[in-house]
């Protein structure tokens, strides 16, 4: 009897863990991302890199003139050195959010691309991991590009700063999986604005531009619950070489975000497409 290759491939996965949700097709989804990327709007790609550099130039050198040094712990550092890690963390967040909200919303509701994908032998976890994986690849390249600009300027004092690149990928992973989970529940394009309403104040208040110690206690407490605060503290700790157990805590925050995000995304995609 003739067995089509697609069937043989699917049969080979019988008995594997989570086989109904996952078929090991993340590389194929990344391949799709790459093919689409080749003909995508380069402006969007470029803006993801240019944005943090512009912030660094305007704030780092503008405010840096008025405020030559800033005190972190017992150490006095240049203002640009203070904000560079925060901008890296923020750009990791922004890139991941863009890929996992706007892009995902259109594929889900407008182009119905996921409908097509899930009619194949793939499962919803393939789609979730593939989409998030693509957001991470982009986040990784932005982080590398940003480091390539700021390190030669002497803005990364510690060698530990190299670890800021994987940290940025971890941060992007957390935001992308939660972003995709939230987006999968959104019914209209307007609802996506809620995400922006949440992100902008978080960016402004999470200690990007000044230490949190300037805030009253209650506000410090609130801001310390937000993911971006943990992202900035993690990347800044590495870039400045302030290595302590606190960094592990910040990283754990993102591990939990990743797990929750993936859980709800898979659950929701399953409910949407396998109902």
């Amino acid at each position: 009897m003739f067995i089509p290759m697609a069937v043989a491939i699917a049969e080979a996965r019988v008995g594997k863990r989570g086989e109904r949700y996952y078929s090991g097709r993340v590389p194929q989804l990344l391949e799709r991302g790459f093919i689409a990327f080749k003909s995508s709007t380069w402006m969007i790609v470029l803006s993801g890199f240019v944005e943090p550099v512009l912030y660094l130039l305007s704030f780092g050198y503008g405010i840096g003139k008025l405020l030559p040094t800033i005190t972190v712990g017992n150490e006095s550092i240049k203002y640009a050195v203070f904000i560079a890690p925060a901008l890296l963390a923020t750009s990791a967040m922004n890139g991941a959010i863009y890929d996992s909200t706007m892009n995902v919303f259109f594929k889900l509701n407008h182009d119905r691309i996921y409908h097509g994908m899930l009619a194949t032998s793939m499962g919803p976890l393939d789609v979730a991991l593939g989409e998030i994986g693509w957001a991470l690849l982009r986040g990784f390249s932005y982080a590398c590009a940003f480091m390539a600009v700021v390190a030669p300027l002497g803005l990364i004092p510690s060698l530990w700063g190299l670890l800021a690149i994987p940290a940025a990928v971890l941060i992007a992973f957390g935001f992308a999986s939660c972003g995709m989970a939230v987006t999968s529940y959104m019914k209209s394009f307007q609802q996506l604005e809620i995400i922006t309403v949440f992100l902008l104040p978080m960016f402004l208040f999470s200690g990007s531009f000044y230490p949190l110690t300037v805030f009253p206690e209650w506000l410090q407490f609130t801001v310390n619950l937000l993911p971006l605060t943990h992202a900035i503290n993690l990347v800044r700790g590495l870039c400045l070489g302030h290595i302590n157990m606190g960094l592990v805590g910040h990283a754990l925050y993102f591990v939990i975000m990743i797990i929750c995000g993936l859980f709800f995304t898979t659950k929701r995609l399953n409910a949407l497409f396998m109902k």
Binding site: I9, A10, E31, D111, G116
Partner: peptide, 28 residues
């Protein structure tokens, strides 16, 4: 599966649509 509403990949060309769909099945 040919669904009622088209679910083609608008970001890809005609041949790329065929190619990637085959890849989704895990085909070489």
């Amino acid at each position: 599966v040919v669904p009622q509403q088209d679910s083609l990949d608008m970001h890809l060309s005609v041949s790329e649509n065929l190619y990637i769909y085959g890849r989704y099945f895990g085909l070489p």
